[in-house]
């Protein structure tokens, strides 16, 4: 029996879809059977981020409304045999699915997959309620900005009210340079304010955009810092104890020195 994890945020555009795609790919690279579910009905995104947009035949609404069987709607990933995507419907809206149907769908997927990861739409309305309905655990993604953190706080309250206890936090688009000069909230600041377990910190990284442009995931990019961050988060989800990534500027003098004397 697998577990269902919802990736949510409240505020839009903070990195839910990016995180879903990378964690799914990361888990699959460890041999896990993974199903990604795009719950952002009407704003289908996960398919293009995964580079699977040309393979869609059926979607989530086809499944919940009985047009096809679940199996038929699942799209196999390009690289990992064990990774699948259930795409959102693009021409319907959030009301095309209800929480009971989502619960049922998650129950079914859990029988077959080790991990079911749900990409939640922004907001706190029906789309959010659908996305969390069948979830066992929640990951809250935020960026170190006032509005995103405020929304994350609201979401944490709503998750707990829905009995999704102990959500885990991912801080995305972290910029060490700005933090160091006091112009961005630090990891400690965020921990102090939100006071939930930190699952990981993903730096702001152009490689996220570069890989996404190509329909690939940065977690497979060995050289990028954000890829390393997602690989670490993947291992934490698998229960390993992985220390936080050192996010100091790789080009910094101190790091150059460290590298020279073999401290890295």
């Amino acid at each position: 029996m697998g577990e269902v994890i919802v990736v949510t945020s409240g505020k839009g555009g903070v990195g839910k879809t990016t995180t879903t795609a990378n964690l799914g790919t990361g888990l699959a690279s460890h041999g896990k059977k993974v199903c990604l579910v795009d719950a952002d009905i009407g704003l289908r995104n996960l398919d293009v981020v995964m580079g699977l947009e040309n393979r869609i035949v059926f979607d989530i609404v086809d499944v919940t409304s009985g047009v096809c069987r679940t199996r038929q709607a699942l799209i196999k990933d390009k690289r990992y045999e064990s990774l699948h995507l259930l795409p959102a419907a693009q021409t319907k809206d959030k009301t095309a699915v209800n929480p009971d149907q989502m619960r049922e769908l998650c129950e079914e997927l859990k029988q077959e997959f080790d991990f079911v990861i749900i990409d939640c739409p922004a907001g706190i309305e029906q789309g959010f309620k659908n996305a969390i309905a069948g979830a066992d655990k929640a990951i809250v993604v935020t960026t170190p900005e006032v509005s995103a953190v405020r929304d994350a706080d609201r979401i944490i309250g709503l998750l707990e009210a829905a009995d999704l206890r102990e959500p885990k936090l991912i801080i995305n688009r972290y910029r060490t340079k700005m933090v160091n000069r006091g112009d961005m909230m630090s990891i400690d600041d965020m921990n102090e304010i939100l006071a939930i377990d930190l699952l990981g910190v993903v730096p702001e990284d152009e490689q996220v955009v570069v890989t996404t442009n190509k329909g690939e995931t940065v977690v497979r990019d060995d050289k990028s810092q954000s890829g390393q961050a997602y690989r670490n988060i993947t291992r934490r989800i698998l229960g390993e104890n992985v220390p936080l990534l050192n996010l100091e500027e790789p080009g910094g003098l101190l790091n150059a020195l460290r590298k020279m004397i073999g401290m890295r």
Binding site: V146, V149, R150, V179, G182, D183, M184, S186, I193
Partner: peptide
Amino acid sequence: SSKNVAKERLRLV
């Protein structure tokens, strides 16, 4: 520093 302004505003809100 602007981060402290951000923190304080967040705390209140």
